[in-house]
């Protein structure tokens, strides 16, 4: 019994959806979006290492990892890595609550836990920015914090929409990420439930863009303006960990959206070949969508971004959650 628990925790932490799984997915995802991002900009993208440059992300990571570790005289030395590792750990913990894990951890009302786990990466990035004092990091981090104030409530409300809807259909355990992901597919056949789902999908993708500092919300790390924002002072292994966290965030949040909104492998099951293919296709569509928005927009100013989120996204998510609580199911 105890052995089983320990085994499940170790599998979750290190195999699936732990480090091994996440390493492979992150590598392939990074290659994929670099490639399509390059195509959208009329470039070729990674090319030389491996067939079609598929090994390029690994090469980049290893190169950065073994570079010189420079810490300025006013900066913290090891704390940035502690915060980054905790953030990656929290994302893997989030994945082990999804049905993708062989031993999914779930309970009644665990959705708030899942949402709070996604709070670790922003906190890590904020502290990271402040751990290397510099005018550029201070400006970038304070912009990121401003964005977070408007982006967090949207994130919460849109995640709640499918969970509230599936719970209202009477499945157990109630308000759980796992059961919502398993049962959300049946909601897409209900024309009334589709409306809040689509509204929530719209707002969560914009909140995703905002949380990850992708264009048009790349204001915190605005390259041509404030060097690299919170990451100005970082190089070598620390930069490697930062890119790792960024890519893991893309993978985990895309998987979260795929499972929670699109039902994962539905209409098949995860154990069949078709199911796995469907899951991969849906995942690639979400990654493509995010990259597409990134490639086709220009950077907003910070107050424009905040006003945009307050005017055009927050009300949508509020309407979605109100609809989700009142429509007849």
């Amino acid at each position: 019994m105890v052995l089983n628990e320990v085994l499940s925790i170790i599998v979750n932490a290190f195999v699936i959806p732990g480090l091994i799984f996440i390493a492979i997915t992150t590598w392939l995802t990074q290659w994929f979006y670099r490639k399509i991002y390059a195509r959208m900009q009329n470039r070729i993208g990674p090319r030389f290492i491996g067939p079609r440059g598929i090994l390029q992300p690994i090469a980049d990571f290893l190169k950065l990892l073994f570079k010189e570790d420079i810490t300025t005289i006013v900066a913290r030395e090891k704390e940035p890595i502690i915060m980054l590792s905790l953030a990656v750990g929290s994302l893997i913990a989030l994945l082990s609550m999804l049905p993708i894990s062989p031993y999914p951890l779930y309970a009644e009302n665990d959705i708030i836990l899942a949402i709070y786990l996604t709070l670790w990466p922003p906190i890590a990035l904020i502290l990271l920015g402040f751990m290397a004092p510099n005018p550029f990091t201070a400006i970038g981090t304070s912009r990121y914090m401003t964005l977070l104030i408007v982006c967090e409530p949207i994130w919460l409300l849109s995640i709640l929409v499918p969970v509230v809807l599936t719970t209202r259909t009477g499945i157990a355990p109630a308000y759980s990420l796992f059961s919502a992901s398993m049962n959300v597919a049946s909601l897409w056949s209900n024309p009334l439930a589709v409306i809040p789902l689509i509204l929530a999908l719209y707002s969560i993708i914009l909140a995703f863009q905002c949380k990850l500092m992708l264009r048009p919300f790349d204001i915190p790390e605005a390259e041509t303006e404030i060097v690299a924002g919170p990451f100005t002072e970082y190089s070598g292994p620390k930069l490697a960990f930062i890119t790792l966290l960024h890519d893991v965030e893309i993978v985990v949040y895309s998987l979260l959206i795929v499972w929670l909104f699109l039902g994962g492998p539905a209409p098949f099951t995860l154990t069949s070949i078709q199911g796995i293919l469907t899951l991969i296709v849906k995942y690639l569509v979400i990654v493509f969508l995010v990259t597409w928005i990134k490639a086709s927009t220009a950077r907003l100013r910070i107050e424009q971004a905040v006003v945009f989120m307050i005017k055009y996204v927050l009300p949508v998510s509020i309407i979605a959650i109100i609809l989700a609580t009142i429509i007849p199911i």
Binding site: I126, M145, E152, P153, L156, L157, I321, T325
Partner: peptide, 24 residues
């Protein structure tokens, strides 16, 4: 959420994020 007032949770999130940046 149990009472069916899920939209009100936004208030807790907004104020908690203010608190977060204030403590930071």
């Amino acid at each position: 959420i149990e009472k069916g007032w899920a939209p009100l949770t936004a208030i807790i999130v907004i104020s908690s994020s203010f608190a977060l940046i204030a403590y930071v």
